[in-house]
Amino acid sequence: MTDTARTLEILERLIAFDTVSCNSNLDLAAYAAAVLADCGFAVTRLPSPDGSKTGLYAEKGPAGPGVLLSAHTDVVPVEGQAWSRDPFRLTRGEGRVYGRGTTDMKGYVASVLALAGSAAQAELREPLKIVLSYDEEVGCVGIQQMLERLAPLLGSPRACFVGEPTDMQVAIGHKGKAALRAICHGQSGHSALAPDFTNALHLAADFLTELRALQEDLAAGGAQDAAYDIPYTTVHAGKMSGGTALNIVPDRAGVTFEYRHLAADRAEDILARIEAAAERVSARYPAPEARIEVEQYNAYPGLDVPPDSPVAAYARKLARSSTSTKVAFGTEAGFFARLGIPTVVCGPGSMAGQGHKPDEYLALDQLAACGAMMDRILQDLTG
């Protein structure tokens, strides 16, 4: 059985590593690799292109499908948040443990490493496989950099659990996401003669209007999935910039935006509609310089698992849950599903309640429930 005291000891170590995504995770990875190696796991490091970070793949047991557990090691920043305690020191109180990453998602990582200790004493009839990634919080960047080397190591697990916080409910879906930039080009000139020039901010404003119209159309006539709080594909503009001085007509402006799409709304179709909108706006302006360039700079796939699928039933059995859910936030699960690995999301804590917030905490009963699920995974792997 998983030792809760050992899990908390590991979690205390993990919280002490400041692995905000802008920082290195090498110290945490070295600690996790040592724990796994001491438990008899074969550990492979999967460094980032610049070597400042690394993912880990670890495996123990005979050759075969096995079960895969996946987590990320980075956390979101604490700057600008009103913490009442040291975010990088685990503290306890009122049946909770506090610290940056307790919920998202070092509590799950600690449970996985504690499970490794139990697996060290067990005779596995199938392998236990573990993936720890980096830079998930900045758009699932790390797992994308790891995949080429990771995929051949994974084999074909019969189930993958991504331990993002779901209150230990089995999540079988989340939307995919694409992040984009629209660069709007116009003509510079003196503002006293502004009507003689094409203002790039005007193109940007018109493009925003097109994005709002696309959102309205998707809400009214696009695919619908009532399992989500927002049951349709969303388009959101988060940043607009342009111009250098009030008396200069700006020749360049930018809009940073995203769409989060249901599985039934194909990403390529949404992108085509966005590009067509950019062309419509550009055509309204006669200046030869007037144009909008749309660039997609990041994306991750969604997850859409049938509720009656074997992996969903298996996960509900292990989590002692009778229902499935879908989550609003993105995860790395879609990447594993794309490899043909049956994947769900299930982990301790509440993203809505504690994730990314000051005084982030994890309830001890959630950590215990996760530990119990880990015990059942090990029992399944040992027969």
Rank of each mutant, 00 (worst) to 15 (best):
A277H: 09
P310A: 09
L128E: 00
T343D: 01
E59A: 09
M374R: 03
I341P: 00
V294Y: 11
M168F: 15
M351F: 07
A283L: 08
G95C: 09
P47L: 08
G139V: 06
H356C: 03
I292M: 09
V67I: 13
T234A: 04
D380P: 03
D251Q: 13
G142F: 00
A313H: 08
F161I: 01
A171K: 03
I274M: 05
Q354N: 15
V249L: 11
P165D: 07
M168H: 11
L115P: 00
C22L: 15
A82Q: 13
A313L: 14
E59V: 08
A42L: 07
R338I: 04
I15M: 11
P286D: 15
P195T: 10
A119G: 06
T44V: 04
T103D: 02
E360C: 07
V170Q: 01
Q296E: 14
A368G: 11
P358V: 02
V76M: 02
L193M: 14
D206M: 06
Y57K: 01
V281L: 11
D50E: 07
L28I: 07
T103C: 15
L303E: 04
V305R: 07
F257S: 04
C160G: 02
A352E: 15
R252A: 15
A245F: 08
V235L: 02
M351L: 13
A290V: 10
A159M: 08
V255E: 13
A42S: 06
T198E: 05
I341V: 06
A120P: 03
S70N: 10
A363G: 10
R280C: 09
D167A: 15
D265W: 09
G371E: 01
T73C: 12
Y259R: 13
L147R: 12
V67G: 02
E137P: 05
S324V: 15
G238R: 07
